[in-house]
Design a protein around this nucleic acid. Structure first.
Lengths: 329, 329
DNA sequence: CTGTTAGCGCTTTCAT
DNA sequence: ATGAAAGCGCTAACAG
């Protein structure tokens, strides 16, 4: 069933049907009623593809992420989808995997399908800016990055001040009398480095010892944290508290300390990052930093919708995380 | 830059360009080289939209899910995306939310965009069959459901034998000498009911007491499990073990027992379901049932790709879950 | 082997 | 207020 069929059945021309479809006011009430009756009878929906061929905006955005299984990304993406959907956009979510090529593939295909904008979720996308093949794809379409930045004219960002976030964790520990604090660094994205810097700076601010040995690189997993706990317990470095860049690894470290018979937080305090369900699953519940993926998602939508619709011209934004007290620090 | 521009620049007709683009063999090597040079020079990519207008298969599938934040769905969807992507398909993921209308909206839009097939992840989609508006959308496109079923001719399923899975949990507990076992039922999907039935049947098989009081309905959250533990501890029903339909709630129950000073598994055993990261986060690690979302995802892809490409004609499949021993039972 | 031409289903001037 | 006709960028007969 296409626009010609509708026109024939309603006894009008296709232009008239098109006018009705697009809510143009230049159609007589009688004609409009006739056409709408046919439309309804057949539950007709115009072909999005044919519309796309006319270069019309599709009221569609694409959200790209590296790994949907990561709960923090999932929460961000979910919020973005719900909010754009509420605003009448269609949202397609792409899982790009870790490769720039695949990301480019998805970006290109979405651009070809006339996506009105992109949201890139995760600081892993930062490196896209360095890739010559990707840049032209992003030039003509508005782009917003959640927790990342891209040195391109049309690319805006919603950032979380992770440096500040880890600072909060250190401040809290210091307020409780801790002096020997260790940081577990997870991954090596911009965000991970910002967190590490936040740790180093906070320690300096408090005049506390912070050598290279105070920062451990750990894998992003329970086992990564578990291994870190083991390393620390066997090592010579004195410590009474651990801050970790990701809840999962913090949960692993907590596990390691508990298994070694330490009491948490009395013998050692632990603070995670993300305020995830992992943090709440731990017993005692993990003290953690809330970096508010839902807020980030909402702001991404506001920014991107504003640019697409040509309304509000927001700049990039940075939000402040908050400490959430559990029972581990 | 379109096919006409390329044709002009290469000094050939658009058909020739189209032939090169589609790897037809009926082009002389010289012409082909000329055209490919132009293609490469401009990094030309044909418009997917225009191709779509010709009704060509787009080598695109859509994966729908109700809530991406649910880790079990996320794992399934992730696997499906990676595998289809590896096979050269483009995958668009849709988060439909809980409403049939929105699901219909996404299905329609994907059908309009010539999606070659659908994967519906989650037993929540079962009710789509009952909706007259959705059925026609699913009729002409191959559909595979992960962990769900639809009474439609073209709709195939990959199911997990959840009844059997919960049976495994009960068998394990009975082997350890437990007789008073309680089941925590989460949600009310087909899958949730199958699990509950599996519990009731296993209890009957072992000749153990199983009244209505032995099945508690709990919310799908840590707090749901926590509340259930409280109810059980305050109630009169004797119990030495708890089986729960979802790891999250099982983790909550475990938390509740530990906080009440019970030793797990000595005083009370706990078994969850999903073999999720939640289960591993618990200390002791939760004994749980692995329902293998990655396997389910892979099989979905095999089924759907088989139907789309007209190769293998697989029937619906059911896989068997496995018990994964942690430290709680 | 290559070019010409007729659509695909829609929107959009331009007439009437 | 309505209709006729020209595309949008591509593929697929059909000719040569």
């Amino acid at each position: 069933m296409n626009i010609y069929d509708v026109a024939r059945e309603a006894g009008v021309s296709i232009s008239t049907v098109s006018r009705v479809l697009n809510h143009r006011e230049t159609v007589s009430a009688a004609t409009r009623a006739k056409v709408e009756a046919v439309l309804a009878r057949h539950d007709y929906a115009p072909s999005a593809i044919a519309r796309g061929m006319m270069g019309k905006p599709m009221r569609m955005v694409a959200v790209l992420t590296v790994d949907l299984r990561e709960p923090h990304y999932a929460r961000t993406v979910y919020t973005i989808e719900r909010e754009f959907s509420r605003r009448g956009y269609e949202v397609t979510i792409c899982n790009t995997g870790d490769s720039v090529d695949e990301t480019a593939k998805y970006l290109r295909s979405m651009r070809d399908k006339q996506a009105d904008g992109f949201v890139l979720v995760g600081s892993v996308f930062d490196r896209l800016g360095r890739d010559g093949a990707v840049e032209p794809l992003l030039r003509r379409v508005p782009v917003v990055l959640a927790n990342g930045a891209l040195p391109l004219p049309g690319a805006y960002s919603v950032l979380v001040d992770d440096r500040y976030g880890v600072g909060l964790a250190v401040d809290h520990l210091v307020a409780q009398g801790h002096r020997d604090i260790v940081y577990l660094k997870v991954l090596d994205t911009d965000s991970a480095r910002a967190k590490r810097d936040g740790f180093v700076q906070a320690m300096a601010r408090h005049g506390l010892p912070c050598t290279d040995a105070h920062v451990l690189e750990v894998e992003k997993s329970l086992d990564g944290g578990l291994a870190a706990a083991k390393t620390l317990l066997e090592g010579a470095l004195p410590f009474t508290a651990v801050v970790c860049g990701e809840d999962v690894a913090a949960a692993g470290a907590l596990k390691g300390f508990l298994r070694a018979g330490l009491r948490v937080p009395q013998d050692v305090a632990v603070i995670g990052y993300n305020n995830s369900e992992y943090a709440r699953t731990c017993e005692p519940q993990l003290t953690t930093v809330d970096n508010k993926p839902e807020t980030v998602g909402m702001l991404c939508v506001q920014l991107l919708a504003g640019r697409i619709e040509g309304t509000g011209e927001y700049p990039s934004l940075t939000i402040q995380p908050e400490l959430v007290r559990g029972g581990t620090a």
